[in-house]
């Protein structure tokens, strides 16, 4: 299944969270959403939102200040 990619590098509060939410709304059940960003607080907060929304957190990786969070709807 295709992965939905959300690039929020350089974006700050609350845009990463909002863009993640928009992507989740547009995704089909089972679809994977990959969010890439640099805002430090969002790396902690997107997983909180994932839990609140009852989604599956697949993995979180970070390389030189750029994090990637993968979510399954």
């Amino acid at each position: 299944m295709a992965e939905l990619k959300v690039d929020v590098k350089g974006e700050t509060c609350p845009v990463p969270l909002v863009e993640m939410r928009k992507a989740v709304r547009n995704a089909s059940p089972g679809e994977i959403i990959e969010v890439t960003g640099t805002h430090p607080a969002s790396k902690k907060e997107i997983p909180m939102a994932v839990e609140a929304l009852g989604l599956e957190l697949l993995d979180i990786t970070e390389d030189e200040g750029v994090w990637k969070i993968r979510i399954r709807k």
Partner: peptide, 11 residues
């Protein structure tokens, strides 16, 4: 707006 957008984003 930031608080309400955060609330909407978190379901």
């Amino acid at each position: 707006l930031i608080i309400s957008n955060g609330a909407l984003s978190m379901g």
